[in-house]
Design a protein around this nucleic acid. Structure first.
Lengths: 138, 138
DNA sequence: TTATGTGCAAAACATTTGCAGGAGT
DNA sequence: ACTCCTGCAAATGTTTTGCACATAA
């Protein structure tokens, strides 16, 4: 497990990272908790939150803020974009070229020193199109 | 006040919309509550939440999900992007061209029917650069 | 007049934190 | 040993909701 210098390698951390790596679904902290609890029934939700936060700070996972009320986590850290289904609420990766020039454009247009950007698309996923679902999720 | 067919024009709604229109700071629901309370001391926080939500659904204001723990609201509804200061947490509009082609690229790259996108930049605002501040905000 | 909106308080969620005991180095 | 980490539970912060009364249309 990649980690910051003084971050101990605990069973909890290994399993959180393993479970997060198994899925492509951008789970919430609570979903990670459920996944991990199958292997470590006594783990606390606080531990999951603390470690996801620490790993996101260390850069070994990504913390997403893609709308809805909960944050989501992603084991894939290379720059990529996300798309959220307005109908069922799921979040997928989207395989398109990351825009490197856009930060320069933004830097010229603002007084900010730009550190990064993310683009979030929203739409209707194929499953929901087929179901003709019209239930909208936050 | 623009509104949906059966949305009544109440004092509370007028004042919430007026106060939101006065600022460019993308206030949180609680900040709107504080602004409005100066003119309507007995208004409830629930009323502010309910109405901001309704107005966002009607499209007369924008609800932003730009990271941090709270949602923010914007009286300017034409498509534009936002930039958040990693140091002090403030959110500014950014005056750059909105990317119209990007939805087509994304639609080709996904199974989704794309309804829209937003881009959020993050960086360090000029004030914080001058202060050399290194305190990071969620 | 009557459906919709409001104030208030409580509930529901998501997340964070204090602390005493446990485990990695 | 000596930190750092964990489980647990309580606290915090944000948003939503139930309900009796008020009010716009």
């Amino acid at each position: 497990m990649e980690q910051l210098p003084n971050m101990r390698l605990t069973t909890q951390r290994q399993i959180i990272l393993e479970e997060l790596g198994k899925v492509t679904s951008h789970p919430t902290a609570n979903e990670v908790y459920d996944m991990v609890r199958k292997r470590l029934p006594r783990i606390g939700l606080g531990t999951v939150y603390r470690n996801l936060e620490l790993m996101a700070e260390s850069g070994i996972i990504l913390k997403l803020e893609v709308g809805g009320t909960q944050k989501r986590f992603d084991a894939t850290i290379d720059p990529h974009y996300h798309i959220r289904c307005n109908s069922c609420g799921k979040v997928d990766d989207i395989d398109m070229e990351v825009q490197p020039l856009i930060n320069q454009v933004a830097e010229k247009a603002s007084n900010y020193k730009i550190l990064g950007h993310h683009i979030e698309f929203h739409g209707i996923c194929q499953d929901c199109q087929e179901k003709n679902s019209d239930t909208t999720v936050n």
